[in-house]
Amino acid sequence: MTTTPLGAGAAGQAVGSPVPVPARRPAAFHQTAKVTMGRVLRSEWTKLTSLRSTMWTLLAAFVVTIGFGCLIPAITVSEWHNADAQERATDFTEPVMTSLVGGYFSQIAIGVLGVLLITGEYSTGMIRTSLGAVPHRLPVLFGKAAVFGVASFVLSFISILIAFFCGQAILHQIGLGVSIGDPHVIRVLLGGAFFVTSIGLLGLVLGSLIRSTGGSIAALLGLIFVVPIITGLLPGSWGDIHKFVPDGAGEALVTVVRDSDDVMTPFGGLVVLLLWLVVGLGFAAYSLVRRDA
């Protein structure tokens, strides 16, 4: 009702009040007000940046990625001085990965954050406000995924980049450091950031489907830590399943030199991860539209 026209029926309804009901002037902004995808994105950005816990988690992921990216190379350098020639030849072959291990911690932080972004709305009741404002619902889910996906990718990539430069600078002391221009390096750094982002989005998907914080986090940790252990133990060709779980696909993205068929090609890993996200978001979207809020 933007204009609130009042017929005789409405006035007649006003039992005991002889005062006629005046026509109401709608606010000026009614003319331009309309739900659009762009506006939902802005709203989700405000939501993401206005929670202190979210900002702390993002900061923690950022700091931990860089911290471990320096710490492990530093340990590597001190171990190098104690190692004999043979150990030096076999144990110090992964200079890029050495500065990327922080990513394993940040994937937990980002994954749990993805869960909390949606389960936090269910547990506080905020979801009813969100879906009341956007009754078609899907823009809320996709807006959240887009804003969070972009934010966590950018943050992850910057932190991984800093970790890489710091780590390699430390490794240069013993002549092991690689340069960003070396083959596969840029792909591995981007792939690492994308893998972390994917885990975050899978958290968002699980949170949308399960709705409870505890259950969703348990499911997410199971998916990224327990499932790979099981698939890693499968015998023979069953072991190939490992390539198709998120962890295996992520491994393909960050493997510098692919020396066996146990991991997929980087492109294959990307496709597998994207499939997980598309199918997952599809389920989340279906569930959001079909179920009562």
Binding site: K34, V35, R39, R42, S43, E44, T129, A133
Partner: peptide, 10 residues
């Protein structure tokens, strides 16, 4: 603000 932004309420 977040609620208002979804539909361009100033």
């Amino acid at each position: 603000l977040a609620v208002a932004q979804t539909q361009g309420i100033p």
